[in-house]
């Protein structure tokens, strides 16, 4: 006879685990990863490998220093560091091999400082991958803004974009020469490893929705609001809507970074407000700075999450209906007014 166990209710639990969710996120990233490697070749693969290894090693070494038994480290490994490494690397430009220290250091920063220092999975305030990218951007500005290379597939429309990315051109007032189809497929588009091929990201998005890791509305709100506000800020030219949302890291950030559980509000009401605000901020920052600002915007928004999740909550089942509440308030005001007269 085995030991009889006592535990708290409920004794049956759903099969879903944190690990399984993280595995789903990894699977969802795979198409963007493959697209990045196909487009940008060895450099892309190199960057990704360094970032993932750096993230995982940082977590393990941190735990070793904290004297967590090795057995536990492996048992408790929940794949989040792999996700962080992948997301971080895919949001970097296809950097030259000589810049190997950029993904390495950003990985250490992302996991070591942003996640482990705050207490590990679930305790971080800001998104590790996003912050890692911002860290890289600020620390290695030169390398981060000049490492663009042409993808393996040229544009279908035959145009060649040189130098800066499509988005920076567009924000500077230059109409994009690449077709929307090019922007969607990523052909001929210079940019970060995982951000260029929107179709690959979309496959990941559909997978996440089907697996119920995220709700379909989440990224749609971010992208939609950003696009709308962006168009309004840029002279109400609606032909810019598609190029505006298809260029840069918006879709990538909206699907993979903004949907991160830990750094967004847990209840859906607050979450929707959060995404609308995020969209507005992205568009404003893009306008204000003239460069891609998705990661900065997400980072900023991460900081107000605690506020949102505490103060924007649905009303419990059986609360006085909102309409009645308002009516009662008015009735009271009326009475008070009456007395005063």
């Amino acid at each position: 006879m085995q030991k009889i166990i006592v535990s708290d209710t409920p004794h049956v639990r759903s099969k879903l685990t944190t690990k399984r969710i993280m595995l789903d996120v990894i699977i969802a990233i795979v198409p963007a990863l493959v697209a990045g490697i196909v487009f940008f070749g060895g450099r892309a693969a190199f960057n990704v490998a360094i970032a993932v290894v750096s993230c995982c090693l940082t977590e393990w070494i941190w735990l070793l220093i904290k004297k967590v038994p090795v057995k536990d480290i492996f048992k408790k490994f929940d794949f989040t560091s792999i996700v962080t490494g992948l997301l971080l690397a895919l949001s970097l430009p296809p950097l030259d091999y000589k810049y190997f220290y950029i993904p390495l250091l950003s990985g250490i920063f992302a996991v070591g400082v942003v996640k482990m220092l705050f207490g590990g999975t679930g305790k971080n305030v800001v998104n590790p991958a996003v912050t890692g990218r911002v860290f890289a951007f600020i620390s290695f500005l030169g390398a981060m803004t000049s490492g663009w290379i042409q993808p393996a597939f040229g544009s279908i429309s035959g145009e060649v974009v040189t130098g800066a990315t499509v988005l920076t051109d567009m924000l500077a007032g230059v109409r994009p020469t690449l077709s929307n189809l090019d922007l969607f497929l990523g052909t001929g588009v210079t940019g970060c490893i995982g951000e260029t091929s929107k179709v690959a990201i979309l496959i990941g998005y559909i997978y996440l929705v089907v697996r119920r890791v995220i709700k379909w509305q989440w990224p749609v709100i971010v992208v939609g609001v950003t696009g709308l506000v962006g168009v309004l800020l840029n002279g109400c030219d609606f032909t810019l809507f598609l190029p505006y949302i298809l260029s840069g890291g918006l879709i990538y950030g909206a699907v993979f970074m903004a949907t991160d559980y830990v750094t967004s509000p847990a209840n859906n009401l607050a979450r929707y407000i959060y995404y609308v605000l995020m969209g507005v901020i992205i568009a404003l920052l893009r306008k204000g700075t003239g460069i891609e600002t998705v990661s900065f915007a997400i980072l900023l928004m991460n900081l107000i999450v605690p506020l949102l999740s505490l103060h924007v909550r649905p009303r419990p089942f059986g609360s006085v209906p909102f309409g009645v509440l308002v009516k009662e308030k008015f009735a009271k005001l009326g009475k008070k007014g009456g007395k005063a007269e």
């Binding site: 049956v12 639990r13 685990t17 944190t18 408790k76 999975t121 559980y261 847990a266 209840n267 009303r315």
Partner: peptide, 28 residues
């Protein structure tokens, strides 16, 4: 049949809040 895996850190996914029939915030 029963779950005995023990708790891991909350990932703030919001599933509990969504499933709560009283619309409370269980993670909080």
């Amino acid at each position: 049949e029963v779950d005995m895996s023990g708790p891991t850190p909350c990932i703030n996914c919001g599933r509990c809040a969504e499933a709560c029939p009283m619309r409370l915030q269980p993670m909080l």
